[in-house]
Design a protein around this nucleic acid. Sequence first.
DNA 1: TTAGATACATACATGGATGTTTGTAAAGAG
DNA 2: CTCTTTACAAACATCCATGTATGTATCTAA
Lengths: 219, 219
Amino acid sequence: MARKTKAEAELTRDAILDAAEAIFFEKGVARTTLDEISRAAGVTRGALYWHFRNKADVLTALIHRVESPIDHLLADIAEADAGERDLLDRTRQVFRRVFEELAEDTQRQRVFTILIQGTELVGEMQPVQDHFDAKGQRLVAEIRRVLERCRASGELPPEVDPALASSAVHAFVIGIHMLALRCGGPLDLRCDAPAMIDMFFAGLARGRLPRPENHTEIA
Amino acid sequence: MARKTKAEAELTRDAILDAAEAIFFEKGVARTTLDEISRAAGVTRGALYWHFRNKADVLTALIHRVESPIDHLLADIAEADAGERDLLDRTRQVFRRVFEELAEDTQRQRVFTILIQGTELVGEMQPVQDHFDAKGQRLVAEIRRVLERCRASGELPPEVDPALASSAVHAFVIGIHMLALRCGGPLDLRCDAPAMIDMFFAGLARGRLPRPENHTEIA
DNA sequence: TTAGATACATACATGGATGTTTGTAAAGAG
DNA sequence: CTCTTTACAAACATCCATGTATGTATCTAA
């Protein structure tokens, strides 16, 4: 085969990564073969093994293509930290921007989705995934009804949107699960998680707590 | 081989599930072979294939062993909904209990960890996972410093614990990513995510917003 | 008591993905 | 201009996990 120039070689490398990103995204990493990737990139496995050592190497290269958003966050926070006034509000804006920028960057979205994909539930396990998703939707709907009643009764301030808040509760609960259960999870289920729940609900109620004797400690 | 009685057969089935749970937990689903599972259970693959159709069937059986915590949640919320007063506070207690009970149930913890495991980063991808974990820790530390300054300056009420709140922000951000990026993600990055960030920070500040003109809309 | 079903173990058949090796035509260095 | 290196393609070797088929001893029901 005709040897390519350096620029062309870099082009095929990118093509391989693009193909891997697309196939990993829709089939999951474990169920994707190196032959599929190279074939989708218009080359053979020979090319792939020239540029990468194995599948894991391809994946790490994919990750390195999108600069870590946490780095981004850290830099922005440091910048916000340098200012003098409205520090909290500027930090809020930093976090807003993280998601606004992620919304524009579909490549980063795909790579993150690949990394997040739990247990490769795609394929044979798809019904399980769908089942869990449906349960989540029902949960959000229930919480929303509760929060609407709370706002009507004045337990919740009127500026809190029940629809948004219910989704927020869902996200919060999911996030706590992630941090507590995933490897190196720095969160303690017994102590941190309940305290964080209290904090979140106190924030929703703007700090207006009900009767203090109603607070149950761990039995 | 001597045929077992029904009770004994059910025992080997449980042994297979126990073994699968342990090995899935430490090696991930994709990198675990059915031979490992049956061997760890003290039987051969013949027994496994008698009780289950394939690996996915084993995994679904594992999931069904722990009743869905979302069902739990839904039931508890419905129960709380039935009451008359302090609805918000009782809902808060329901969510507290979810994590308190999860903390006691190590089996459910393992199954959930198996399901959550992202892209089977175990094995060759472990350094990537560790790298991300470290980044997360640094992020929490930075946020904590910012929140401490905010509390000192009065932007944050004194009852908000910066250490806890920083971890909460982390969990919240992770959860939003999950809901927005994962299959069937019901969250919109452009609209919902920033709004939820605003809501969270407003809750931290107990609704005390800074200058309103400081709120940036999506550029 | 016996015929069939059960609960496995064992052996086999197969594919399919990986890693490696070899071939090769052109690029690039001197 | 040639010699080496590059950037792959193509063929090979190998293994390993899966699925299935078969064997078989016991349980169980009639």
